[in-house]
Design a protein around this nucleic acid. Structure first.
Lengths: 151, 151
DNA sequence: GCCCCTCGGTCTATATTTCAAACTCAGATA
DNA sequence: TATCTGAGTTTGAAATATAGACCGAGGGGC
C-alpha cells in the first residue's frame, strides 16, 4: 500500500468510497460480535446475549438495525412440542460478510503466538482457509504492492 | 458457512476466538474511518479530522488507543522550511489490516449498482484486486463451503 | 518586538448512549 | 393455579460523545 510522501489533504472522494457507509453499519463494538454469532450459526436472542454479554436492550436495538440494513432476517421456528420462537439468521448479503470476518480473524491470529483454537476449514479438507488478494489472473498479490486508483 | 439446525448454546470457545479481541480495537465507528485514512496514506491530525469529521477530542483519544494497540506510530516530519509536525502512520501490524479493509470494501461495493470510484490495483496492472478464500492448495473456496473446526 | 496564523491538541458543559436490573407478555409445564 | 422460559421493553444512573472555546509552540510579516 503506497504511503509515499506527506499530503495535506486526502486524495480520495470520501463519501463515495463505501468504507464510510460500511462503518456506519459495522463500526460498533456489539454489532461485530453479533454478526460473528450469526456466522457461527447462533440464532436465538438469549444465546447471542449470553455468548457476547451485550445488554438486552442494546441487543434488541442492534438486531433491529441489522434487519433494517438487510444483513439479518428474523424468522419463526418451532422445536418439537415447544411454542414458536424468534430467531435471526444471515441474509445473503449478511453472509457475504464472511470473507471480511475471516480476514479479521486471520489478522488477529497472525498477531498471536499460540495457534487459534477455532478454524474455518473447507468441507472435505483438513487445513483451514486463508484470505488472500488476487489479481485479474488469479495470481496472489502482496498487499504492499497496491496503488490507489481514483476516478 | 454451515447454519444447520437451531442450537440453544454457541459451540464456540468464545473468549479464545480472537474476534472478540479484534472488535475491542476495531469495533468503533471512528476507529474504522481513522484506519481507512491511514491506509490511504493520510498522516496529519487535521487532515484525518477534516476527512472523517471525527471531533478532535475523540480523534485524539482514538489515535492514542491505536498507537497503544500497536497499529499506528507517531512520527515527526519536517516539510521544507516549515517547523516539525506530528504524523501517524501504520505499523506493520496495522498495515496487515489492509486485507480486512479490502474485504469490507469489496463487500460494500458488491451491494451497489454503480461501480466503485476508488479501487486498489496491483502495481503495473489495470484491474483491481479482489479478496478471496484459498484452501491449502491455493484453490479458491466458496465461503458457503466452510465448516467450523474447534479444539 | 509584536501580532497573527497554523497545527495538534486539551477543556468544558451539554447531549446522547450504555448499562444493569426490574418489569412485561405469551405460551408451555407442573 | 402457579411457575417457567424466551424475547423482549422500561427505567434511571453512569459513561461517552459532541461542539465549540481555549491553549502553546513555531513561523511569517511588518
Amino acid at each position: 500500500m503506497s504511503n509515499s510522501g506527506i499530503r495535506s489533504r486526502a486524495p480520495v472522494p470520501l463519501d463515495r468510497c463505501g468504507m464510510a457507509r460500511a462503518s456506519d453499519i459495522l463500526g460498533d463494538r456489539w454489532t461485530l460480535l453479533i454478526l460473528r454469532e450469526a456466522i457461527y450459526g447462533v440464532v436465538r436472542f438469549a444465546d447471542i446475549q449470553a455468548d457476547t454479554g451485550v445488554p438486552r436492550s442494546v441487543l434488541s436495538n442492534r438486531l433491529a438495525k441489522l434487519v433494517d440494513a438487510g444483513l439479518l432476517t428474523r424468522f419463526e421456528y418451532t422445536e418439537d412440542g415447544a411454542r414458536p420462537r424468534q430467531g435471526y439468521r444471515l441474509t445473503k448479503r449478511g453472509a457475504a460478510l464472511a470473507t471480511t470476518f475471516l480476514a479479521m480473524k486471520d489478522w488477529w491470529d497472525m498477531g498471536q503466538e499460540t495457534p487459534p483454537t477455532v478454524r474455518f476449514v473447507p468441507k472435505g479438507q483438513a487445513k483451514p482457509v486463508r484470505v488472500a488478494l488476487l489479481d485479474e489472473n488469479g495470481e496472489e498479490v502482496d498487499p504492499a504492492d497496491l496503488k490507489l486508483q481514483l476516478d
